[in-house]
Design a binder for these strands. Structure first.
Length: 877
RNA sequence: GCCGAAGUGGCGGAAUUGGCAGACGCGCCAGGUUCAGGACCUGGUGGGGGUUAACCCCGUGGAGGUUCGAGUCCUCUCUUCGGCACCA
């Protein structure tokens, strides 16, 4: 077997070790590192990995310094579940799985620099994951400068300062990029454990089908929303698929509109309030006697016939009248029980309850009722809306349900596909698009766009509103109730009774890492608190500077380790910092990042967020980590269905390598179609075809049936003939171009054509054979190294200069040109390749067949494209 | 509902970006080789018509349009896949 032999050679000689710093042009080619599952490598993995490997090998032959690393994203739920099931430490199984993955990756001949291998579960690695968390904790976001800054630089307002140190501390805590908050968890009493979202199906545990309830728990959040603006606008400069950018933009969900305050005080105090607002302007925080809403359609203010606040809105209590109290309490309690899913998917009918109070519409002074309904989310905008039923689908449904008046204030100007103009103006149909204002006082007749900007300005002048931007993006719930994840480097201070004081202290940097404790067993302890609460006291209760603490027992989510692994590859063994700044500046950004589209949003957004914080804190030198991103397509089974054990259509890479070889697997996956095409169905016949091609390449160069591989007789040390040179140089040109554009399928097709041609040649110039071996080597490295040796070379070809093509050897003396009449193909002529228009037209007219067709016809126009075609246009066309 | 991607032979897919549609591979057909099977080699292979020759017509999901010329550009439309989905 030649493949394992070459793999050993590469490893023994350190062929693919990257230099600490690049010399000359650099290429950082990165794969999305895998989660080492117990099932081993899936054929989807080698697809992207082969693509980056080809690019990396090609770049080396072009003289670039290449960084091409691999590692493992090894924290995760399956290992934890396995540990619970077998009561063995998760690290044991994880390391077995990594070993298997490493074996499989090496078997495929990827040119990784294995000295840089990392796993997110390495203590020496997650030490720096914890360190980055400390940077988050130590940062606040300066909205004026749009960047994260050290918490020490946070300006403290005087009134806070006067309240004392505790107030200052709380104020800082409220501004940190990592902060604590109560967030609901999926608590399953029957299993006695907290479940991840993916372990909950229809409100029941995936395993066992036990009921799951939502229970608030103190957890860590990351303030990713602070970076929403930059995460969106910086997408523009990235060489990413537009579809992925669209997905991220959609996820960030920027919208523009206005915030407006509705007065909720007593009617007779409305005028003085308005007066006061005119002088004070729009306050940063709304005062108690108003309800602040966010709307993208301030132009529909005149059509607001009621308001809605979320059940969790702080004003619920004060707005509820005695008569409504019972109904409101019941409704809010019910809403609290529902999960987000229940509130969306299952709620076909709008629900809500009247508070008994009303507010005053600032544009016309009219009083409108305030309702509570769970179709308004506390987590978006201000948690309160003005409802314009005539021009919002949800409000329309709600108003119909509860018989609230509907007033049309936007004239569509004509019938729409859904409704007539008359229905819309009569408010019996909803219209949500833009139009012309009606029933809007002095604003009547304005277009939606004009109206929006005009009324926003007017409200701002009166101190009643202001332009505002909102994002769908939410802060990132960053803690998990798991034992197989990075511990937080955080300590909770305890008082003399052993109760938490509420003060938090971070583990000093020089005491990192905080390693995971050894657990006696892995069974759930039956409480919603994290499983690490079972750890031994010496881990759980450290004493620092004479103060006793309890460690944070939440762990970080799996995303944490993958947020920055691309940085550690640059300097994986550095014990004194995350990455040497000189090394970072030399290698970053990642030039090519290939992985599955399933990470389009979360991983790529989280990683960009972390990178931006590290950029703001001076750890990295680029604002974005991944310059070019490519998503490989999904590979389906032979039946065209997604591969799964239950369907029995899983293709095992080990089996393919055993039967056909690694080069065949690599080449086949690249030949299946465009890299990014998705999905692609596996075809064993296709694998066979590719194997046949590699066999023909071998036979083209090597003597068959010889004891030892020797160059076959047809391969001779002679200069190529003119046609041979043409094929050779065309192939070099096409393959070079195709590798640059990641069009591996066509590159392979071009080399097949080369092979088909030269197999028929009785004499095959050795120089041409060598060039082909070089061209094919990034794709099928084992075979090509072997052929290179057979052709008489001693070392590896991995750094041999890439073949160059000579345009003058490609050019033909004469070319065949299609002749068209009325745009239809009617004949072909052979002309000198440099023939001018006149010569081409003459040649076409002289062709017997064309001449006959042109006889008795009036040619009104002749289109001649030199080197391409001749087209005669007749009268009457 | 909104956003995005894609529809080309029996199949996977090419087409230097407006210039000979179907490269290359699979499959299939015929022939060669072989005890046989497989492997390998040679030739053919979009559909229809034709005196089976020359040649003609049709053809890139569908309908229009722009152009001397459209798989490629524009408008409308259908289908499939992926994502988001009470975000005011």
């Amino acid at each position: 077997m030649i493949e394992p032999r070459w793999q050993k050679t590469w490893e023994a000689q350190g062929t693919f070790a990257s230099p600490r710093l690049p010399q000359g042009e650099k290429l950082y080619a990165l794969d999305m590192f895998p989660y080492p599952s117990g099932d081993g490598l899936h054929v989807g993995h080698p697809e992207g990995y082969t693509a980056t490997d080809i690019v990396a090998r090609y770049a080396r032959m072009c003289g670039k310094s290449v960084l091409h690393p691999m590692g493992f994203d090894a924290f995760g739920l399956p290992a934890e579940e396995h540990a619970i099931r077998t009561n063995t430490p998760p690290r044991v199984q994880t390391e077995k799985n990594i070993e298997n993955f490493r074996r499989q990756l090496k078997m495929l001949g990827f040119s990784y620099d294995w000295d840089r291998e990392i796993s997110t579960t390495d203590v020496a690695y997650f030490r720096w994951t914890q360190w980055i968390f400390l940077q988050m904790y130590d940062s606040w976001f300066d909205h004026d400068q749009q960047r994260g800054r050290p918490i020490a630089e946070l300006p403290i307002p005087d009134e806070v300062q006067q309240e004392g140190d505790d107030a200052v501390r709380r104020y800082q805590d409220d501004h940190r990029l990592a902060y604590q908050s109560d967030a609901p968890v999926n608590w399953c009493p029957a299993l006695g454990t907290v479940l991840a979202n993916e372990e909950v199906v229809d409100g029941k545990s995936e395993r066992g089908g036990h009921p799951v309830v939502r229970k608030p728990l103190r957890q860590w959040m990351l303030r990713i929303t602070a970076y929403a603006q930059r995460l969106e606008s910086d997408l523009e400069g990235l060489d990413w698929p537009e579809s992925i950018k669209a997905l991220q933009r959609n996820w960030i969900g920027r919208s523009t509109g206005a915030e407006v305050d509705f007065y909720i005080g007593a009617g007779e105090t409305y005028d003085p309030w308005c007066q006061a607002r005119r002088s004070t302007g729009f306050p940063r925080q709304p005062d108690e006697d108003c309800l602040r809403v966010y709307t993208t359609r301030p132009d529909t203010l005149f059509g607001a016939t009621y308001m809605v606040i979320a059940p969790e809105h702080p004003a619920v209590e004060s707005l509820t009248t005695a008569a409504q109290a019972a109904a409101v309490n019941a409704y809010c309690e019910q809403a609290a029980q529902k999960s987000d899913l229940d509130r969306t998917d299952l709620a076909k009918e709008k629900t809500g309850v009247f508070t008994g109070s009303s507010a005053i519409n600032p544009v016309n002074g009219e009083s409108i009722p305030i309702w509570i309904a769970d179709y308004v989310l506390i987590s978006y905008g201000t948690g309160a809306i003005m409802a314009v039923p005539a021009h919002d689908q949800r409000d329309f449904e709600f108003a119909q349900q509860f018989e609230i008046p509907i007033l049309a204030v936007v004239d569509p100007g004509g019938d729409t596909p859904e409704a007539t103009r008359a229905d819309i103006l009569a408010a019996t149909a909803v219209f949500t698009a833009e139009g012309t204002a009606v029933h809007s006082g002095v604003y009547d007749g304005l277009s939606t766009a004009e109206f929006k900007s005009r009324i926003t300005d007017d409200l701002a002048a009166q101190g009643l509103g202001r332009a505002a931007v909102n994002y769908k993006l939410r802060d990132w719930l960053f803690s998990r109730q798991r034992f197989w994840g990075e511990p937080f480097p955080v300590l909770h201070e305890l008082d003399a009774e052993g109760q938490p004081t509420g003060r938090v202290r971070t583990v000093p940097e020089d005491q990192l890492p905080v390693d995971l404790p050894e657990l006696a067993d892995f069974k759930p302890h039956g409480r919603p608190e994290p499983p690490l609460d079972k750890a031994a006291d010496e881990w759980l209760y450290p004493v620092l500077d004479g103060v006793r603490y309890k460690r944070e027992t939440n762990t970080m989510p799996q995303w944490a380790g993958s947020c920055w692994y691309y940085l550690r590859f640059l300097d994986p063994h550095n014990a004194s910092c995350l990455v040497d700044p000189q090394v970072e500046a030399a290698w970053m950004p990642v030039d090519l990042y290939i992985g599955g589209a399933e990470h389009a949003v979360l991983h790529l957004l989280y990683a960009r967020f972390w990178h931006k914080l590290l950029y703001d804190r001076g750890v990295v030198s680029t604002p974005e980590p991944f310059r070019k991103l490519v998503n490989q397509g999904m590979i389906l089974g032979e039946d065209g269905e997604k591969m799964s054990k239950s369907r029995g259509n899983v293709i095992n890479p080990d089996k393919i390598v055993t039967e056909y070889g690694a080069d065949t697997l690599r080449l086949y996956e690249m030949f299946m179609g465009p890299l990014t095409k998705s999905p692609k169905a596996w075809s064993t016949q296709g694998v066979n075809g590719v194997r046949g091609f590699l066999d023909r390449v071998w036979r083209m160069i090597v003597e068959e049936d010889a004891e030892q591989p020797v160059v076959c007789g047809a391969v001779q040390d002679v200069a190529p003939t003119e046609p041979q040179n043409r094929v050779l140089h065309k192939t070099i040109r096409a393959v070079t171009h195709d590798l640059e554009t990641l069009s591996f399928n066509t590159a392979i097709a071009r080399m097949m054509e080369f092979t088909n041609f030269f197999l028929k040649e009785d004499v095959r110039p050795k120089s041409a054979m060598q060039q082909l071996v070089l061209l094919l080597s990034p794709l099928a490295p084992h075979l090509c190294e072997e052929l290179w040796q057979v052709l008489g070379h001693s070392g590896t070809l991995a750094y041999h200069p890439w073949p160059k093509y000579d345009e003058s050897l490609i050019a033909e003396d004469t070319v065949e040109i299609p002749v068209q009449i009325q745009g239809r193909l009617r004949g072909k002529i052979a002309v000198p390749s440099d023939a001018d228009r006149d010569a081409m037209e003459t040649a076409a007219r002289t062709d017997p067949k064309i001449a006959q067709l042109l006889a008795d016809q009036t040619v009104v126009k002749v289109v001649v494209v030199p080197g391409r075609l001749v087209n005669f246009v007749m009268k009457g066309s």
